[in-house]
Amino acid sequence: MITMSEQTAMPVRAVVAGHGQFAVGIISAVEQITGRGAAFVPVSNAGLCLDDIQGAIARALDETGAQVIFTDLPAGSCTMAVRRLVRERPGTVLVTGINLSLLLDFAMQDLPAEGDMQAAIHAAVQTAVERGRASLAVYGLEVRT
């Protein structure tokens, strides 16, 4: 089932999962910048054991039809839970260590209305990951030896 936002009629493209209010916060930033926050569904690990985190993310995937999960921290419990899900659900994609640039790029890419949707999503993930990596920058750092 594809869940559509009432405001934008935009299908959910991915689940965002992380610590505390990370997912809600970064999705709100996407919404503020692009109006496409509805492309994502948030999941928090707060107060949940590993099995319950896995269950919450699995439900979010089932309810939205999304096959992509973005998580905040490679060592985090959401990432651990999703790695189990990826093993159980071929075609599911996990991206961890995300940032706002990556999510913005993923939300803004145009996807075809028909055809090989999985291939299109995977290509969009790859492009967004490259954008996210490239967005890291440091200014004014002085390294003293």
Partner: peptide, 11 residues
């Protein structure tokens, strides 16, 4: 810790 290795432990 029922999450075993995770952010609180590692970081």
């Amino acid at each position: 810790d029922d999450r075993l290795i995770h952010g609180q432990v590692v970081v």
